[in-house]
Design a binder for these strands. Structure first.
Lengths: 334, 334
DNA sequence: TTTTCTTGTGCAAACGTTTGCTTCGGTTCA
DNA sequence: TGAACCGAAGCAAACGTTTGCACAAGAAAA
């Protein structure tokens, strides 16, 4: 294992003290021009790369150029897009991103939260697993900047970026109703997630504004994974009087529901109409093309990263809360 | 910023030396039973969490439980699956994963390679951007364990996990030929990537074994992103005598090609048949369901992580090279 | 000439670990 | 009664930075 050159090596070669080298790198303090040149030369010759670990250890109070991103599931295209948004902004600002998946598993979320603190990242971006997550609050109290995305935390005065789930769902279900549907099944998210709740409330409000009663048997709660979409769609479609349209609250579950529909041989939209949350890679070329609520996932990631970077630069700024608008893309599935 | 408790705090509270605390944690050296108990108690009361940064700084020669994963694009489902494979294995072994996207951009790849070395990760998993990537070799020479996935490095005797691209493409194109097609367009990957080359060679060999000539105008090279799939499909389909079938060398480009086909209003498979590399989320419920070469992406990630962990544990083991088989899933698009 | 600023540089502490070495009391063995 | 050993715990160095402080030498001010 060849050791990387350190400050000491550079200093020795340039015949100066390590502090001079450090100050040359950071342009802090007064250093004579020709000394700087000598140091630069030595660094170059040795191929010196600062050791980020040592830097982080020493300077708790200084930006270490590392942020953490903890997401439920990288296989969900929504989060993949979001992650790209975060990463692109980070890269432009010379930050590295440490990305972890918690897979909707609270234990895993906590493990990664611990890891990130132990790595002393400059800040963390995450969708909290549910609205009162004491572990996240704990981190905040420790002084680590946190930006919530997608899902929010009920307590805690934090920077956050969310999507207007209520209005997205409202618009979608209004559209479904406008197509003449009266029995509309919903495959929702977990009841304790803010996104799940808000989308459900949009569904309910759309019913209310059309003077339609919500039928409890048409309301199901999934876990945002594909399998639950399939299972719940099957349950709904097996009802004595099944829904004529389905509103599915995320992309993966929509894919699952589509599988169920395909297996049953039902025709879309005649026998069963469907509107899903989240754009999917093949949605526009699907046959029929899918009507979906498109979330600006990439932009959510970007904004969150920008907010986090601002907070890292200035811990005292007032928390900002952004709400991005989704948009209903009407195609042929409803 | 509340400071996390350190070894010193624990030691003070338990009335012992920090070394005793450290040794209690790692069960190294002889520590009396009641001392251990006292230390445990103190750690618990203080909520002590070891500082990973300090640990990494101190112990260059000891596993620091952090591995790096550098991938071209997290928005490509193949890599998302692969990443999950890596992450699951890592998590089971108490390793954290630092994930970065280089977006097929060499400068970005190098930036992240630098970052990971500077973070002194225990090892790195990556698909090299092309076959002779000096930066990667440099890292290897520095003594950092590296496992290549998906794409390989021509020099360097490394652990690697690849997919049998040649046989996957061969089988797929043989199937296309067996369906009666004689003019088969290929939308390939970059010519300097091993995956691109191998898939192309499978395409050629399938032609050869059927005594078919490869028509140069039917061979196009994309960049594994969606846009290029769309553009090249349009080019191919605009030919004076267009292909009757398309073989598309990755999932994102397949989605792009599908867009082009949909825009042209062509019917699959009658007017244009299509087989793509990579399974896609909606492929099985697509209309018609897509015939694809499924790559065991998750398993590639798993195996790579296992290999890397083994190498971290024992630097002197002989490099292992794994080749996983893809399988052709015949559905209705060809 | 002496005093007071600059300017450029070095010294050394600190961050939180891990670990080789030392120390110290107590057994065991001759 | 020593010599030799052993088990338990402490001391201090090291990892590679950053940074407050000290210091020397020359310049400016008195």
């Amino acid at each position: 294992m060849k050791k990387n050159p350190s400050l000491v090596d550079v200093a020795r070669r340039a015949n100066v003290n390590i502090s001079t080298v450090s100050r040359t790198i950071h342009q802090t303090g007064k250093i004579g021009a020709e000394t700087q040149a000598r140091v630069q030369k030595a660094m170059h010759e040795l191929g010196y790369k600062p050791n980020r670990v040592a830097r982080r250890l020493r300077a708790r109070d200084v930006a270490t150029h590392l942020i953490g991103l903890i997401i439920p599931n990288i296989q969900n295209p929504f989060f993949a897009d979001l992650a790209r948004g975060v990463e692109d902004v980070a890269y432009r600002n010379n930050f590295a991103v440490m990305l972890c998946n918690y897979d909707e598993d609270e234990k895993k979320e906590h493990f990664y939260l611990d890891v990130m603190q132990a790595e002393s990242v400059d800040g963390i971006i995450l969708p909290p697993i549910h609205e009162q997550d004491p572990a996240v609050l704990q981190v905040v109290q420790n002084g680590t900047p946190v930006v919530c995305v997608d899902r929010i935390l009920s307590s805690g005065n934090l920077d956050k970026v969310e999507v207007d789930n209520h209005s997205g769902a409202l618009e979608a279900v209004k559209h479904i109703i406008a197509q003449g549907h009266r029995r509309i099944g919903i495959i929702g998210g977990p009841a304790d997630s803010s996104t799940g709740r808000e989308r459900l409330s949009g569904y309910k409000d759309a019913h209310a504004s059309a003077n339609l009663a919500v039928k409890p048997e048409l309301v199901r709660f999934g876990d945002f994974k594909q399998e639950s979409g399939q299972r719940l769609a099957n349950e709904l479609l097996a009802l004595a009087s099944p829904p004529t349209a389905l509103f599915v609250c995320n992309g993966l579950m929509t894919a699952g529901a589509l599988e169920a529909i395909a297996a049953l041989g039902l025709r879309i939209p005649k026998q069963i109409a469907i509107v899903g949350f989240d754009e999917l890679p093949l949605a526009s070329v699907f046959n029929p093309p899918l009507t979906v609520v498109r979330q600006p996932a990439y932009e959510v990631g970007q904004s969150a990263a920008e907010l986090l970077l601002k907070r890292i630069a200035d811990a005292s700024r007032a928390p900002t809360s952004l709400k991005l608008q989704p948009n209903l893309i009407i195609r042929k599935s409803c």
